[in-house]
């Protein structure tokens, strides 16, 4: 039995008629989801101003056309038809996907053994290893790309180094301003990002499953292909997604290292908003890129679902 006289404040509060302001507080207190959204609202407001509104306008502008230095705001699909009919746009898109696709595959292939090493063979200072591997990713992207310009340049590290060593007679021209240069740089720049999902998926694998496979007669190689690799597929898919999507629209790397044959869709979009000054066309290309990204994103999502379902 509670002696209510000992709790004067609480009882008084409960009995007193609710004031106007207290009503809202009470409602917020009861409606959990409402409180949640209230807390989220400043963040959501920024996202609305910074992402949703711009996209609506971008979508609108993509239906406009350029007229001299101004826009003809009559809605039309002319830009989309141009993108569809003129082969240069398709070729550009294809090249963008090709370059970032190769970079993605290369990055995942190179990072997988490293992630495997840290997940299975590093026992002390795991955290230090993880930080060491991901550290470069957080530093200036521009400067990391610039570093590759220094390395691959006509008089860069490789050419001048090899010349000084007498390995080559004259500077190699294929290094800079090529698709290869873009692919190498993208793979290097995004490697630190690919490591994490790979590491997480490998770390999650129950060690007793690997022991069971060994116990049932599998040597290390067979065990890897029958157990480790299938179980780490969600990480491989996630890593591929996290590299492929952002690199498709990359601007800096092809701009600094791509040369005429290494330009990607991002450079073309920038051209429309810059020198060419055809903003509606730029908007259209951005929307088309977004649609592609959405489609690819859904494909990855589906793949992840399938992989998860098989492993659940």
């Amino acid at each position: 039995m509670t002696d209510t006289s000992l709790l004067p404040d609480q009882t008084a509060d409960a009995i007193a008629p609710r004031r106007r302001g207290a009503r809202l507080t009470a409602m917020l207190h009861r409606r959990e989801s409402l409180r949640g959204y209230l807390f989220m609202s400043p963040t959501l407001a920024i996202m609305a101003v910074g992402i949703v509104a711009p996209f609506i306008l971008l979508l609108t502008m993509s239906t406009w056309t350029r007229q001299g230095f101004d826009f003809d705001t009559t809605p039309t699909f002319a830009n989309y038809l141009r993108v569809w009919s003129e082969p240069i746009f398709g070729a550009l898109m294809q090249r963008s996907f090709w370059i970032s696709g190769v970079a993605t595959v290369a990055t995942v292939l190179v990072c997988y053994p490293m992630a495997y090493f840290v997940a299975f063979h590093v026992h002390k200072h795991k955290m230090l290893w993880l930080i060491l591997m991901t550290l470069p990713f957080w530093t200036s992207y521009l400067l990391r790309v610039f570093a590759w310009k220094v390395i691959l340049g006509y008089e860069g590290v490789i050419n001048s180094g090899f010349l000084a060593l007498g390995w080559i007679e004259e500077p190699l021209k294929v290094l800079l301003y090529s698709q290869t240069a873009v692919i190498i740089t993208l793979a290097h720049a995004w490697a630190a990002f690919a490591i994490l999902p790979l590491y997480v998926s490998l770390e999650k694998i129950d060690r007793s499953l690997l022991e069971a496979a060994t116990d049932l007669g599998d040597g290390p190689v067979r065990r890897f292909f029958r157990i480790t690799l299938p179980l780490s597929m969600p990480g491989v898919i996630a890593a591929s997604f996290l590299i492929f999507i952002p690199t498709t629209g990359d601007y800096i790397t092809p701009a600094l290292l791509g040369g005429p044959n290494g330009q990607m869709i991002g450079n073309f979009i920038q051209l429309q908003f810059g020198p060419v000054n055809n903003w509606p066309m730029g908007a259209t290309l951005s929307i088309v890129l977004m649609l592609w990204i959405a489609a690819i994103g859904l494909a990855f999502l589906y793949l992840t679902r399938v992989a998860r379902k098989r492993l659940a």
């Binding site: 129950d206 007793s208 499953l209 022991e211 069971a212 496979a213 492993l311 659940a312």
Partner: peptide
């Protein structure tokens, strides 16, 4: 195994 280690895939 103690956890049975049934291969989930």
């Amino acid at each position: 195994f103690q956890s049975y280690a049934i291969f989930p895939h």
